[in-house]
Write a protein that binds this DNA or RNA. Structure first.
Length: 196
DNA sequence: CCCTGATTCGC
DNA sequence: GCGAATCAGG
């Protein structure tokens, strides 16, 4: 394979849209992610910032480097990435500390469709309890961090900052981890006769 | 282990 | 110019 104009165009487009090198390589076919990265550098667009908003609303930052001096260092800045994580994230394998799940957070009305989570009266109490435990071990990945083998079960309200995906290893071939597969693929027999 | 981009360097 | 190998990091 060679870098025809078409392929370069697709590369540019995808890269600008925030796709990873491996994703682009897969899409193009016939090249590895290394090839893509190499090309990206040769094209001189390793700086993905200028061009398209990769993610989030705060993407109006231009990285214009004046030949003079970066004196104006105190710009509006991106206040965004202040969304740190709890001091010490309990290692997955470590002792499972039973955290009471501090669901007490600033609640912002959705104003948009909620993720496809089964309504409370549709899942059996036992499974619900199981999910609680799983959620405590979840990797809490962001949309961008999901891959073909990370559980894509959404938790929380996408309109708030308390939204994440499970992220645990998926069940072979399924989009969810073992626990969430159990929830997502309930046999009719199990769902039957669950009064509301 | 899964993944990411960055760099090097023989081709 | 190309990209595998390697590096550095999450």
């Amino acid at each position: 394979m060679s870098w025809t104009e078409e392929r370069v165009e697709l590369l540019k487009k995808m890269w600008a849209e925030g796709a990873s090198a491996s994703q682009i390589a897969k899409e193009l076919g016939g090249v590895t992610r290394n090839a893509v990265i190499g090309k990206v550098h040769r094209l001189g667009l390793s700086n993905r910032n200028a061009g398209a908003p990769a993610q989030g609303p705060a993407a109006a930052n231009k990285v214009e480097a004046p030949a003079t001096e970066p004196v104006s260092a105190a710009q509006p800045e991106e206040v965004a990435e202040a969304a740190e994580e709890k001091p010490a994230q309990p290692q997955a394998e470590a002792a499972v500390s039973q955290q009471p799940q501090p669901q007490l957070r600033k609640i912002i009305p959705a104003g948009q469709p909620l993720p496809p989570q089964p309504s409370a009266n549709e899942i059996d109490p036992e499974a619900l309890a199981r999910v609680r435990k799983v959620e405590s071990k979840a990797l809490r990945l962001s949309l961008m961090e999901l891959t073909e083998r990370t559980c894509k079960w959404p938790v929380g309200d996408p309109a708030t900052d308390d939204f994440w995906f499970c992220g645990l290893p998926v069940q072979h071939g399924k989009p969810y981890c073992e626990a969430h597969v159990a929830l997502a693929y309930q046999p009719m027999s199990a769902r039957r006769d669950r009064r509301r």
